[in-house]
């Protein structure tokens, strides 16, 4: 039962990774693409890590998965802002309809 729940979380996570990647390809400029990656991929990785933690039978491994998720959240959020700021500083204007 727990294994099943873990697998469901992993599959959900993969769907969010997929949607983030579709956004990366489909959205028109660097800013909108950052939206897709920063939000969808954070949740996707959280779901995959949670799913894997349910499959793991070892507390150290579960702690490692949690830590990986936290580190990726922090670096992902920071990098998104840095890329957006650098794009504006280089004169790239946000795309508008």
């Amino acid at each position: 039962m727990i294994m099943m729940a873990g697998t469901v979380l992993i599959v959900l996570g993969l769907l969010f990774f997929l949607s983030g990647t579709v956004g990366l390809l489909r959205f028109p400029d660097v800013f909108t693409r950052l939206h897709a990656l920063s939000k969808a991929d954070t949740l996707a990785l959280g779901l995959v890590c949670a799913g894997l933690a349910l499959h793991a039978d070892d507390g150290a491994l579960q702690l490692k998965l949690l830590l990986i998720w936290l580190l990726v959240i922090v670096s992902g959020a920071t990098c998104s802002s840095l890329i957006a700021r650098a794009a504006l500083a280089h004169g790239i204007r946000p795309w508008q309809r």
């Binding site: 983030g20 489909r26 909108t32 897709a36 939000k39 946000p94």
Partner: peptide, 24 residues
Amino acid sequence: YNMRGALEVAILALDPRRHPDPVL
């Protein structure tokens, strides 16, 4: 909020009828 954010951006990315309409 992170779940809602991911869900919204996923729907926007996957639904061909929707498009971003950004503003600063």
